[in-house]
């Protein structure tokens, strides 16, 4: 399958500043690409170049095989672009707003009413059809803008910070909407400077900093690539009343007074677990934080089970064993470390 988006050596220079440095990227149809980077890293510039709103200094990009520099008009009708800051017109109703954009995309008058209803349903704004745009809440305006982006049924969506400045509820609504769009088979580039926002629905990510795409590719791939560095989260049984039958002779022997026994005993098991973890290949650091053990794993990928096996073989009562959920953020911090000043 030909790539839906192909970016080749894309570069944008302003007078004394290189905003985007020779970016290369390929996305398949149906990809959801999370474009992550701190503010001012070049996300918006890149997206605007893809949206034909800025001319690259050098290089180009192809969207559905169409050159964005040479045929901007053709690109505009297959791309839906939602800017990071956008406005709405005053004194205009929701349906009029959508009708305006539908007309601007040269959708025949007869089809417009149906399309407007469809996008309103999709964005859950049906009840607001007759309301004035300025009366909508921020989250609703954001959804309306997304609805506007969808009127011409674009194959590719370029969403610049779609969830910025929204309250948690509106943020979740936008996320749900994006998942819906993913299921419709659209190729989406969505940028954000907040990572967890993207983590759960992107299948590819790219991290940009100072105009350079530091890392890009499949989410899991990247996790694996950098996953020399991920953190194992291990909880072991840490209760106040131990069951004697399960205690081994060595631990019993090391107990002296009955009162403080529990704390000392569990601490011992914990100590033992820590010691054991430290001796495992691939673990370079073990920390203890509120009842959990955090082991920093730098070993071979997919070999974490060996650690679990070792723990169990040594009679450590493991309650849960897993990798930490916010890995993407971790990667981000690691990858962009020190470059931002």
């Amino acid at each position: 399958m030909p790539p839906m988006i192909r970016i080749q050596n894309l570069r944008k220079e302003y007078r004394d500043l290189v905003a985007v440095k020779n970016l290369n990227l390929e996305l398949e149809p149906g990809d959801i690409f999370g474009f992550i980077g701190p503010n001012g890293a070049g996300k918006t510039t890149t997206i605007k170049m893809l949206a034909t709103l800025l001319t690259p200094t050098y290089g180009t990009a192809y969207i559905d095989g169409v050159d964005v520099v040479r045929y901007p008009e053709a690109v505009r009708s297959i791309v839906g672009y939602m800017p990071d800051f956008f406005g709405v017109y005053d004194d205009i109703k929701v349906w009029e707003y959508l009708d305006f954009f539908a007309a601007a995309y040269r959708i025949p008058r007869a089809k417009r009413a149906q399309i407007i209803d469809d996008v309103l349903t999709l964005t859950d704004l049906n009840v607001k059809k007759e309301a004035y745009v300025e009366s909508l809440s921020r989250g609703m305006k954001q959804r309306l803008c997304l609805a506007k982006t969808l009127v011409h049924d674009p194959k590719v969506l370029l969403l610049d910070e779609p969830a910025s400045g929204l309250d948690p509820r509106a943020r979740i609504e936008i996320k749900e909407l994006l998942k819906e769009l993913r299921s419709m088979g659209k190729t989406i580039i969505v940028s954000s400077h907040i990572l967890p926002e993207l983590a759960d629905f992107c299948n590819k990510i790219g991290i940009i900093e100072k105009g350079e795409l530091i890392i890009s590719g499949d989410v899991n791939e990247i996790i694996r690539q950098v996953s020399g560095h991920h953190t194992l989260e291990i909880r072991i049984l840490d209760e106040n009343t131990p069951e004697p039958s399960q205690l081994s002779i060595e631990t019993l022997a090391s107990q002296t007074p009955q009162e403080g026994g529990v704390a000392v005993k569990t601490s011992a098991e914990m100590e033992r677990a820590i010691a054991l973890l430290r001796s495992q290949p691939g673990v370079d650091e073990v920390k203890r934080s509120d009842g959990k053990l955090l082991a920093h794993y730098v070993g071979e990928p997919n070999q974490e089970w060996r650690i679990l096996k070792a723990l169990i073989e040594n009679d450590i009562r493991v309650l849960s064993f897993g990798t930490q959920a916010t890995d993407l953020e971790d990667i981000f911090m690691r990858v962009t470390k020190g470059i931002v000043s």
Binding site: L53, P83, F101, A104, Y105
Partner: peptide, 8 residues
């Protein structure tokens, strides 16, 4: 910008 992105 949004206007510029349309086919107008």
């Amino acid at each position: 910008e949004m206007l510029a992105m349309t086919r107008l």
